[in-house]
Amino acid sequence: MKAASGILVAALVLWPGILPAADAPPGATSCSGCHATNAAAETPVPKIHGRNADETVALMAQFRSGSKPGTIMGRVAKGFTEDETRAIAAWLASQR
């Protein structure tokens, strides 16, 4: 990288151009540990990347309240506030 002034030193060299367009909200990237993004992975666990955000928010609310039976998701849902869940759901909706 060549700044016009040429002021570049090892620890201070920065590359602002590498930033992705949007950040994944906190927690969002962990979902794919169980919910596959790779179509080749054979799994009964539902695909959530690309799912409608309102649908994800509603499901998470049901898991959190216990009104939807499940195995692990109730305990995961309780780790996120509604606002956090909404942000994650929106991000998931934008993913494939």
């Binding site: 920065l14 590359w15 602002p16 151009g17 590498i18 930033l19 992705p20 950040d23 994944a24 906190p26 927690g27 990237t29 962990s30 979902c31 540990g33 169980c34 692990i72 995961v76 780790g79 996120f80 956090e84």
Partner: peptide, 21 residues
């Protein structure tokens, strides 16, 4: 990885949430 990209770009990484199963 997200934090490293931020640091290399000169920005402050966000407070993360993490999951284990």
């Amino acid at each position: 990885a997200e934090a490293i990209v931020k640091l290399l770009a000169g920005q402050t990484p966000q407070q993360p949430k993490l999951i284990n199963t």
